[in-house]
Nucleic acid binder design. Structure first.
Length: 168
DNA sequence: TCCAATATTATGC
DNA sequence: GCATAATATTGGA
């Protein structure tokens, strides 16, 4: 697996806190949940291509946090992951808003029906949560599995999409 | 190359 | 519910 080199980073302010987006030459390559480190980069300091991506990312993130499908997405640079992981992430992007998927189903979609455990690992390695809807992946009995940025986020996001309730 | 870890799942108690 | 075995993939020694 190749090492991803981060070119730029900029913050995105949302009602839920300030996110940190990272951009490579190809596009958005990372997204971090709040809380953030003290230092932050201003979006106006970005070069032209990244600045455009950042604008799109901000809007897309804002919509995603509201439980709506982003109207437009910036180019995503997923080259940081292995081929298997990229397949998983592509499968995740196909999950519509308001829908959920089990780890086993995601595994089946990419032709690795038995790679359930590995799918979980790939989701955990997802560098762009929310925009790549890793939070819409649940365990077999529709229970919450885990989440990189904290299980609380997964619960909150699904709740806003009305895809999941505590009751089940 | 081998070993341990994992955001799972199925089974048995 | 909880413990255990089986499974695929990854990363480090």
């Amino acid at each position: 697996m190749r090492k991803s080199q981060v070119e730029l980073q900029a913050t995105i302010e949302t009602p839920d806190g300030t996110f940190l987006a990272r951009y490579s030459e190809r596009g958005l390559c990372g997204l971090a949940f709040p809380p953030l480190p003290h230092r932050k980069t201003v979006s106006s300091a970005l070069p032209e291509p990244a600045r455009e991506w950042h604008r799109i990312t901000s809007e897309a993130l804002g919509r995603a946090l509201r439980g709506e499908e982003p109207k437009r997405l910036p180019p995503l640079d997923l080259s940081a992951g292995t081929e298997f992981q990229q397949q998983v992430w592509q499968a995740l992007r196909k999950i519509r808003c308001g829908n959920t998927c089990s780890y086993g189903e995601v595994a089946g979609r990419i032709g690795r029906a038995k790679a359930i455990r590995a799918v979980g690992g790939a989701c955990g390695a997802n560098p762009i949560p929310v925009l790549v809807p890793c939070h819409r992946v649940l365990a077999a009995n529709k229970r919450l599995g885990g989440f990189s940025g904290g299980l609380d986020w997964k619960r909150k996001l699904l709740s806003r999409e009305q895809s999941w309730t505590e009751e089940g």
